[in-house]
Design a protein around this nucleic acid. Structure first.
Lengths: 342, 342
DNA sequence: TTGTAGGCGTTATCAA
DNA sequence: TTGATAACGCCTACAA
């Protein structure tokens, strides 16, 4: 591998001059003629700067580490992908690369620890949370990242008191789906969440309960279902539930995929959307635009959340020291899967 | 930032001993007692190894660079995501991280050049191609990566004569969709491709032509349409085409999303799937499982292709020098969107 | 305009 | 079992 030294020796100047020029082509600390010779040598040697040596020397890497405490494969989840798309778009624009480091650990805390360990040297981090994490684990993860003394931003993590930069996704967006159904006169509602464990589910269930208890039909614990974000599971759960609760007129789903599956289940149960049963999804992902009828949903603005997170991190990297909490709230996208009951 | 030196000084031994122990806890080149003191110091100082210094010294990074010549945001494309999911799964398992580096360039060649430049030092690379690339650009990109002398594997790139490790996706999978329609008695077929430019489209169109010319109805250039992989565009293109060619009985689509959109267009044209018009997609993505009727499609095994690519790269990294071409061929998934014409 | 020298944090070699 | 020392490739004072 060719080095700056070789180049310098080749054209008979000092490494310093080569380095200076290569880092600033407009410098006037190197003569016009020397510049040309350096350029030529770079080509001749097919010289590429050694990234590690540079980073070691400058304490900068132009790399952002993505910390995701999950044991599932990446890039297979609608939400995360939209988030990542936003992040990557913004970071790329400002010349930053992104780094995913793996972990063979099983617990959320261990995973983040390992990811941090291996990606030490990143200029900053984006810390995700997933449905698996408990609040306790999340706090520990935050502590762990803090210890690196590097700037970081959390994403998809509930609000934390301390001075941590966060992009917050309003937790209640499923509930705003429920609210929408209620507003449209629905009283017999099924709530289809993702996983039954984890902080998130607990919140959502509580909110749902609180909301439903204001109505005579009331709250029924068995009407909170779990589709595990999978099409198959959602389908079977809803089919069963529809038999058990034929009075159902509305289903509020935690994801568009689960909503689309629910629509299939409804159809196969001999009922139709929205005349018999209304369905509302969440995320305004492409799926919501491909169902029949078109799926009403809550747009979570995940892509924008990713952009904001990247912006916030970039700001901090640039020296901004004011801690920010950016709150993304969902917005209702009314399409054809919900009808008004009169 | 604490260093190995500090630690060594702190407990009064040499950096070398610390390094040796930290890299192999079971070493017998360090005394039992010293080990304990090192462990303690590591905790006291909250010491983390410097990734760059290590890589500089060992010429290894445990990092694989992903080279994708596209100006579009990453993580927004079904195919690529499935590929990446496979790649990440396997690489993670073997302790490798993945690195995405950005480029502000506009041409495929410049992008790869810049990505390579910035990610210099990766242990290996995965080179993608996208619909944008011409064969000429692809060749240049391969040359560029070769110059790094690092192992690499190409993905989604047509076969190249030279001794390049490649995972090949059988280009003809759209055509096998057409073949399936033909086998089911369809003669008036629309082909919905992605983009009109690029190597891939040209191939596919040629193959389609060849196939159709064997039948009396023959080949009509206007029946090759371009949906740009977008739901909206596909919808409008198909609506228009259906008015122009009411004799159409089958549509073969390059992606499941475009197929799902086509199904919407068909429905809104007052026709139905599959009784009036049959539709076949490509990729066996989640979309194909959420349409009504369920979409027949060609499974491209993208995830497995990603796994294979990672395996191949890992093998090469491990010293295997035999060049391999792994051919992934698609398989038909028969569901409910195609009917037999008798 | 150019060169020298020291340092970034780690590993590797060799000697003790 | 441990320590010195050089090397990895680059950057940055400072000196010339």
């Amino acid at each position: 591998m060719s080095s700056i030294k070789e180049i310098a020796k080749y054209i008979g100047i000092s490494p310093a001059s080569v380095s200076i020029y290569l880092n600033n082509k407009d410098t006037n600390r190197v003569s016009r003629e020397t510049k040309i010779r350096i350029d030529q040598a770079v080509k001749d040697f097919n010289y590429h700067k050694n990234f590690f040596a540079k980073s070691l020397s400058t304490h900068e890497s132009n790399l952002i580490g993505i910390l995701i405490p999950t044991i599932l494969p990446l890039f297979e989840n609608d939400y995360t992908n939209a988030l990542l798309a936003g992040i990557q778009t913004r970071l790329s624009y400002f010349g930053y690369g992104i780094l995913f480091f793996p972990s063979s650990a099983q617990s959320s805390i261990e995973i983040v620890k390992e990811q941090l360990e291996k990606s030490a040297g990143c200029d900053g981090y984006l810390l995700f949370s997933t449905g698996f994490c408990t609040m306790n684990q999340i706090r520990k993860n935050i502590e762990e990242v803090k210890q690196t003394k590097r700037p970081f931003v959390t994403l998809n993590i509930p609000r934390v008191d301390e001075d941590v930069n966060q992009v917050l996704l309003e937790d209640l967006d499923v509930v705003s789906g429920v609210r929408y159904l209620l507003k449209n006169g629905h009283r017999n509602i099924l709530l289809l969440l993702g996983r039954s464990k984890g902080e998130h589910s607990r919140y959502l269930k509580d909110d749902f309960k609180q909301l439903m208890e204001q109505y005579p039909a009331g709250y029924d614990d068995h009407k909170v279902l779990y589709g595990e974000y999978s099409a198959e599971k959602s389908y079977s759960v809803i089919r069963t539930a529809l038999e058990k609760y034929p009075e159902t007129t509305g289903i509020c789903c935690m994801s568009d995929i689960m909503a689309a599956s629910s629509m299939q289940a409804i159809r196969d149960s001999g009922k139709s959307v929205p005349s018999d049963i209304s369905v509302i999804g969440r995320n305004n992902s492409i799926h919501s635009k491909l169902t029949y009828p078109l799926l009403s949903t809550i747009d979570l603005h995940m892509r924008e959340a990713g952009l904001s997170a990247a912006n916030l991190l970039l700001d901090t990297l640039a020296g901004n020291t004011v801690t920010q909490k950016i709150l993304m709230s969902g917005s209702l996208v009314e399409r054809d899967s919900v009808r008004m009951i009169v």
